[in-house]
Design a binder for these strands. Structure first.
Lengths: 119, 119
DNA sequence: TCATGGTTACAAAAAGGTGCGTAATTTACC
DNA sequence: GGTAAATTACGCACCTTTTTGTAACCATGA
């Protein structure tokens, strides 16, 4: 039973942004409007179900805007809301921080674990 | 043990900071040096297993410094490393962002503002 | 028949909790 | 004097809960 609505905003953010996909989806949505299938192409390892779930979650908390166009095949577009866009630099800052830390760690770590930058 | 080598720093940060505990522990460690039992007191709902696991993880990535003092009963102290301290304002910024979003969501939301439909 | 954006059911995997064991020394007790 | 309990920071095994993956199904216009 989880009825613990946390007293801490940070705990709440992490409930939304933690996990593997949310920040990635936000990252890809920076480029502009994306459709369901676009996002799957951007991130081929996410399952159909997860993508639907995560998008719904992001929509519910107001990070993502879902726009449904009539007609068939159904067409749906996803964008970052203004709130979502305000989030982007914060996430980027975390990425930069991590690069810093990882860079420092690499000096004392055996080779073999390399990372490549995203395009 | 699984070694997920991701292409994206953000994905990696989230693997470390995502989840329920890491940010909370960092939050409490802002106050200064803490011992294992202090952290359990700060956060009574974490199990000793989880606390140990999370602390080790944070130590491994260089956010937390673990200092073991000899003697018995064993005594261990935890602090934020400089990198960990640099992380704090970033986490705080996320918290502020969330307060913003949550505040906006709670406020009046007249029907019809959200769903956009085009034909 | 295919494509799009879903949903649902079932299965597998990961995360998390509980409780016991451990170490070396002090203190508490018979 | 000898023994037992308590202390601190975990590790480990076992079990439950939560999350995620897989695959199948839906609607329908072209």
């Amino acid at each position: 039973m989880k009825e613990l609505v946390s007293r801490c905003p940070i705990e709440e953010v992490m409930q939304v942004l933690g996990g593997r996909w949310p920040t990635l989806l936000i990252y890809y949505l920076q480029d502009g409007t994306k459709r369901f299938s676009d996002l799957r192409r951007d991130n081929p390892t996410i399952s159909h179900k997860m993508l639907a779930l995560e998008l719904r979650k992001l929509e519910e908390v107001g990070i993502v805007q879902r726009t449904e166009f009539g007609g068939y095949p159904l067409r749906v577009e996803y964008d970052l809301t203004p709130a979502g866009q305000r989030l982007v630099p914060l996430i980027d800052a975390l990425g930069d921080w991590w690069d810093d830390v990882a860079g420092a760690n690499e000096e004392s770590r055996p080779a073999g674990t390399e990372r490549a930058a995203m395009s």
